[in-house]
Amino acid sequence: MTTQVLQKPIDLPISPRLAKNVRRHVLERVIEFILMLAALSAVATTIAIVVILLYESLSFFEHVSIIDFLTDTQWTPLFEDAHYGILPLVSGTLTTSAIALGVAIPLGTIGAIYLSEFASHRTREIVKPILELLVGVPTVVFGYFALLFVTPLLQMIFPELPGFNMLGPGIVMGIMIIPYISSVAEDAMRAVPMSMREGSYAMGATRFQTAVRVVTPAAISGIIAAYILGISRAVGETMVVALAAGQQPNLTFNPMESAATITAYIVQVAMGDLPHGSIGYQSIFAAGLVLMLMTLVFNILGHITRKKFRETY
């Protein structure tokens, strides 16, 4: 009897639930295709941007040598005596970004540590939405805030500070970036398993020691990701610097001076009425290319650091 049972029954139809269902099959393929399109749209846009930047920059570099572009210390494409040295724009971008990150990284990190490790559930529920509201404020508002509030405030401390300067917008940009950094870093810290915190407390550590010596190192990879996001935001930010940092390209790293950033120059030209195809017009693509490469370099550096510090637990 036992052998009979084990024998495979012949001619028994397979269960209808397992039979190939044409309608379901087609539906699955359609959904798969739609999902792929959605994913591709971002990739395609990126590729299109790179192609256009490269194409337009190429005709720019037919007129301007790359060596001049990288070494000339003046950027005056719209003047009679045109100079095409990108350095003044790069210095403006780096200076404002550095100020912004100098504000955003410490405050964002401290905010994340507070929200993740110290704040009670109730406090977190109140503070987080307010921080996220900050993200929703249009950058043009931040720009005027820098120009009409922060700069005059700074002028009380530094009377010689010009109306357009890099310090004011740098600080405001930093405040603007805090919620990006604190939110991503906080998520990373909250993802650290409770067992690790318990291990630290069980050794007699205080809350602060646990937060700084155990949770932060455990979440460092995510915290660095938050910094990368912040850097990209700072380097690419346009409105605040265009409004409050001035639009004179100026090769300086002194935050007390006015200067133009790459983004500010691009807006300035794009909103003016330069004829298409002129060198001045093409210069914004070259500038855009430099901006993109800068962001790319920061991203790659950040990625390498993240990998180096990546912890598994």
């Binding site: 398993p193 690790m196 630290s200 069980a202 007699g204 455990a218 460092i220």
Partner: peptide, 14 residues
């Protein structure tokens, strides 16, 4: 500080 503990799952620090 006087009573220490070993957990169910090993939980070394990073």
């Amino acid at each position: 500080m006087r009573i220490s503990m070993v957990f169910q799952k090993p939980n070394p620090f990073p």
